[in-house]
């Protein structure tokens, strides 16, 4: 029991004294996960909307695949991205393995099905009559989807929250693709694993607390945006 309290005490000291390395790691974690989430939103929301409103063969199969992708194990995403980015792999010329860019790609792949699947289900909750009415008023498909997206924006923000939460907490993909290199690709999650294995529980707790705080702050910001929209209705 003693060592847990001691660990927390030292951890708070590390955080309050503004340990520059911990904060650099936090900055990298935030940048990578936000960038991956942003990319997944830019690609996944239009993709999900399109899948939702269009009729095409094997649509149910595609939706089932996207839904399955929500549970894509990060280590599998990491492995695949690693194989592609490796020097001997097809995208080796990019030299992105063991860089933040590589980690963003891996996390993007993890977040994309989540954002897409949640966009599909949100879009399918829009009354079809409403959608058809907009089309009848002379709107193009794209314009109609945009109008609907504005209607379901709260759910979209929820999808963003779900995607970011998954990414910032994810360890497997960034460990494989990033390599946990100090000052380069060490993330809050991989640093926590390493410090725990080294028995440096104070450092591990400190980084863990920063990770929790980071998740909370970003979610708080997104929730404020979401709830403000409710009020402005």
């Amino acid at each position: 029991m003693e060592f847990i309290l001691e660990g927390f005490r030292k951890a708070l000291h590390i955080i309050l004294s503004g340990n520059p390395e911990v904060f650099a790691i936090a900055r990298l974690s935030l940048t990578v996960s936000l960038a991956a989430t942003a990319g997944a939103v830019l690609a996944g929301v239009p993709l999900g909307s399109w899948i939702a409103v269009k009729k095409f063969p094997l649509k149910k199969l595609l939706i089932a695949l996207v839904n399955t992708g929500m549970g894509l194990p990060p280590v599998v995403a990491g492995l695949v991205v690693m194989l592609f980015l490796a020097r001997s792999g097809p995208l080796g010329f990019l030299n992105w393995l063991y860089t933040p860019k590589g980690m963003i790609i891996a996390q993007f792949i993890i977040a994309l099905p989540i954002i897409t699947a949640l966009s599909i289900s949100a879009m399918q909750n829009v009354d079809p009559k409403f959608y058809n009415q907009i089309l009848a008023l002379g709107a193009s498909d794209r314009q109609a989807i945009w109008v609907c997206l504005k209607e379901i924006r709260l759910t979209i923000v929820a999808a963003v929250i779900a995607g970011f939460g998954r990414l910032v907490a994810e360890v497997g993909a960034v460990m494989i693709v990033g390599g946990n290199i100090r000052h380069q690709t060490r993330m809050l999650t991989t640093a926590t694993v390493m410090e725990t294995q080294m028995g440096n529980f104070d450092m591990a707790i400190a980084i863990g607390l920063v990770l929790l705080a980071l998740g909370f702050v970003v979610n708080l910001a997104l929730t404020v945006i979401q709830q403000n929209k409710v009020l402005t209705r």
């Binding site: 939103v41 504005k150 924006r153």
Partner: peptide, 27 residues
């Protein structure tokens, strides 16, 4: 219309972040 602006702003901010994440030049 205010909401459109918020959405656009959010999109722009996220896009900027994405670019910032990628723009770091390789040593």
């Amino acid at each position: 219309m205010k909401n459109t602006n918020v959405m656009a702003l959010l999109n722009a901010a996220l896009a900027a972040l994405l670019l910032a994440g990628c723009a770091k030049t390789e040593p």
